[in-house]
Design a protein around this nucleic acid. Structure first.
Lengths: 218, 218
DNA sequence: CCCAAACCGGAACGACCCCTCCGCTCCGGT
DNA sequence: ACCGGAGCGGAGGGGTCGTTCCGGTTTGGG
């Protein structure tokens, strides 16, 4: 977001090709996972790999571009859920929306929640989701000992369901989410463990980001 | 299993090395995921890769050996939960046990629930878990419209939580599981979608098994 | 219309990883 | 103790995939 004048002007064909590459990558990642060869993406975009590498210095940077898009969709969804939904339904609407976005991007999910770029935007998303959660709790729909970090965990669990079932039953995650939402309703039975701390969530992000960059050693 | 006389007798050093390889693989997979190089495993076992390949004709077969172990632990756990637990707690005990087993085997989880070998044993496990679920429902702890396939989905979601949080907070999955168990309790609010069918679950298995064998195409 | 700069394609390079091969070692029955 | 053969190690073959390089092509301002 802070970038403003990276390319003063991009030649028209180059801009067109850039868009084709991003679209092809989005589709290829969704269909075959982030491990597809760059040649597949270039083919689907109708360009050579050289062209791809002119615009994106590394495959990783191309993935980042796709994840940036996705992250902004999640942010927009959170904001919409806060603005356009009554307090009682905003929280569930957000979770369901994220579920659908995950379905549309199976294959890059491993990178979505490890995306530590844009600390600014992350803070903003967190603030929005905290408000959604707070309203749901005020409305008596969610038990009060649930905290923001639990939402992260739930989205990680949702990822597990989506990644596994989406190709066979693209809506099955909704049934699962119904169960989770039921589990979030107020209850007098305490939870056996404390929630993750914010620092722990950050460490999860950092760890999986490193792992994505192809680590091996000790 | 069905195998009886594959190796009439294995030389003592060879048997010792086989055990060292399996132990090293178990640890290496848990620490670095199934993508560790075979040389890492061989090193850790204190043998050469040639030795490893004498015993396991393929890296995949080594993974299978580890998954076989794990699968049997799950089966044993289900049986124990049925035999040694009161009807009210067996079901939860099974889920918690599977959670712990998943923590101990992060890194091969992608292969566990895609493991289609031993159709026999799978049927038996299914039957046991159905009984656990039925007892929990009879005891009024689980809503009656939950079916066996939902348990598969829940374990897939648990995998998502375990894989993400285990390295940072190895017990966090327990809090998540508390929420899910709460969500399973009887409720008059219907679920929005029907459960997966048995055939769909089978297709999920088949799909992910193929994907594990390094697919690419169309 | 013309030309320099930007852009394009895809062959080739290098790093990585699974697996094989073969000369040597060590077990264990006689 | 001896010897046949199972077992061992690790260098290297073969294949894949990310990235680079460069000769030819396209763009768009003067």
């Amino acid at each position: 977001m802070a970038l403003s004048n990276a390319q003063p002007t991009l030649r028209r064909d180059a801009a067109r090709n850039r868009d084709k590459i991003v679209a092809a990558a989005r589709e290829a990642f969704a269909d075959h996972g982030v491990d597809v060869g760059v040649d597949v993406i270039a083919n689907q975009a109708g360009v050579g790999v050289g062209t791809l590498y002119r615009r994106f210095p590394t495959k990783e940077s191309l993935i980042d571009a796709i994840i940036d898009e996705l992250f902004e969709q999640v942010s927009g969804l959170a904001q919409d859920s806060l603005d356009a939904q009554p307090p009682e339904t905003g929280f569930a609407a957000y979770l369901r929306g994220v579920g659908q976005l995950q379905v549309d991007h199976v294959g890059c999910l491993s990178r979505l929640w490890t995306h530590t770029g844009h600390v600014e935007a992350r803070k903003e998303l967190e603030s929005t989701v905290r408000q959604l959660l707070g309203r749901a709790q005020d409305a008596g729909l969610v038990r009060s000992d649930v905290v923001y970090q639990d939402i992260s965990v739930i989205l990680w669990s949702l990822r597990g369901v989506v990644e596994t079932t989406a190709p066979v039953a693209p809506t099955q995650w909704q049934r699962y989410l119904d169960l989770v939402l039921a589990g979030l309703r107020p209850s007098d039975q305490p939870l056996s463990r404390p929630a993750l701390t914010g620092a722990q969530v950050d460490r999860v992000f950092a760890l999986h980001r490193d792992r994505a960059r192809g680590a091996r050693g000790s």
